[in-house]
Amino acid sequence: MSEKLTLTVKGLKKDFRSGGTTLNPKKMRALNDVSLNLESGKALAIVGESGSGKSTIAKIITGIHDPTGGEIELNGKNVVKLKGDDKRKFRQKVQMVFQDPFASLNPTHTIRHHIERPLKIHRKLKGDALEAEVLRVLTEVGLTPAKATADKYPHELSGGQRQRVNIARGMAAGAEIILADEPTSMLDVSIRIGVLNLMSDMKDKHDIGFMYITHDIATARYFAEQTAVMYVGHMVEWGDTETITQAPKHPYTQLLISAVPDPSKRIDAPLQGGERGEIPVWYPDSVGCPFAERCLSATDHCRKEMPGVTQLADNHFTRCHLYS
């Protein structure tokens, strides 16, 4: 890994169609003005309730969805409309690990196939070198004995092992940034830590950058240096993970943290205390602070105007009228 990579997302917007007719579609805004940075060797945790738009960020970066607005740059170079060879190179560097380890491997192919393909496509390996690399990668992610594992089909592996295969696939491609969409949420609690340790290792030893999407603040603290808290498609507070978890400033983050003293509990369990309204759906013409409906300190101002970004410390930002 010679050069450090930085993936920058600026002002990302995404509208999805939600009902309406073909001629007169209704749109909902899944992401609004999302900006963030990913770097080699660092991890950024994205935390938020279900439906807050976390997966959508990853899917836009990898090109599964097109953005409605905003920019994505890799080391300063725009990557949104890449074609052909440039697209292939970008894909090699930025890989994704999906949430569902059962659905993300092709049931009709062996594990070897899944690891070989990126090696062939991106590193043009053949013959013995290819086989050696397959075994090396599998060993690296802890799938030993590698040879026996390579010959297995996905249904013969456990959830945790499959998620390791997914990570190995990203590594085999030569990824320098991995977008991990809730990689452990469908695994048993007892094996989550193993997968998390594996990602930690890769971050430290191989300088891979991670976007770690999760519901689980405890693991975010354990794994990620940076954290961004999302609410209905908006980033409400972001910065240094320690600060955000120890001294949260935004009322939503405070609610989130106070609700989860037990690290194994998902934060989409009903929130106590501050709950006064439903989680809203955001539309392109919605106004005000998205959290105003549920916020105990909300004023009229909050309902009318979207708060701007306030810098609270060196590496600590929020969007909240309380601090502006």
């Binding site: 990898t62 292939r88 890989q95 999906f98 092709n106 997914n166 696939r169 491609a173």
Partner: peptide, 25 residues
């Protein structure tokens, strides 16, 4: 399905996605 998305993400060409990833299923 996610495994098709994943294959696209590692840069498989359409031809291979159709014949190698989809067809066997």
């Amino acid at each position: 399905k996610e495994f098709i998305k994943a294959a696209e993400l590692i840069g498989e060409p359409a031809r291979r996605i159709i014949f190698i990833e989809l067809l066997p299923n």
